[in-house]
């Protein structure tokens, strides 16, 4: 995918103004709307449509802090892949959390408490990501490594949050 920051014309940062991002997406979508290309040659029409799809994709990527962090890392040539192995301490924490969630499944209060606990953990990972990508002009390899680890943790916490949300909904 093309760099979503570039495509939407927003600053390459982790913390961003959600309202401004939405406004930018709306403006671009309006410019690229098929209605405006009714009279245009087929090639131009197709290009506008392709661009509109890419703009939507970029908007979705930046809207979510997790995929936003992925986009920032990927701009530095880094990614989290299938072959990566998380630290033992993280795996132990996640295993414990998931087992607690299984046990708490029938009691919404307990699930909500676990969810709050994990959301707080996600919050600190997001703060760490912001400190790497926003507080320094060009993060070095160490900082990027820390950001990558934070992203791995965030992915695990996100999975937990999805499971806990599903447990609360059922």
């Amino acid at each position: 995918m093309t760099d979503p920051f570039e495509l939407l014309g927003v600053e390459r940062r982790f913390s961003l103004d959600r309202a401004a991002l939405e406004q930018r997406h709306r403006d671009l979508s309006r410019t690229l709307h098929p209605d405006r290309y009714v009279q245009s040659p087929a090639g131009e029409r197709r290009m506008a449509l392709e661009r509109a799809v890419a703009v939507n994709e970029a908007f979705r990527a930046l809207r979510d802090p997790l995929s936003r962090a992925e986009a920032l890392l990927s701009a530095h040539g880094l990614a989290v892949g299938d072959a990566d192995r998380p630290s033992q301490s993280l795996l132990m924490e996640v295993m414990e959390l998931r087992e607690s969630l299984d046990e708490a499944r029938r009691s919404p209060d307990k699930v909500a408490a676990l969810l709050a606990q994990v959301r707080a953990r996600s919050g600190s990972e997001e703060a760490l990501l912001a400190s790497v990508f926003d507080d320094q002009p060009a993060p070095g390899p160490d900082a990027l490594g820390r950001a990558r680890d934070a992203l791995v943790r965030l992915k695990y916490f996100r999975r937990f949050e999805e499971e806990a949300d599903a447990a609360l909904d059922s």
Partner: peptide, 9 residues
């Protein structure tokens, strides 16, 4: 063990 890409443990 775990696969971070999908959040499996």
């Amino acid at each position: 063990v775990g696969a971070p890409a999908c959040g499996d443990v």
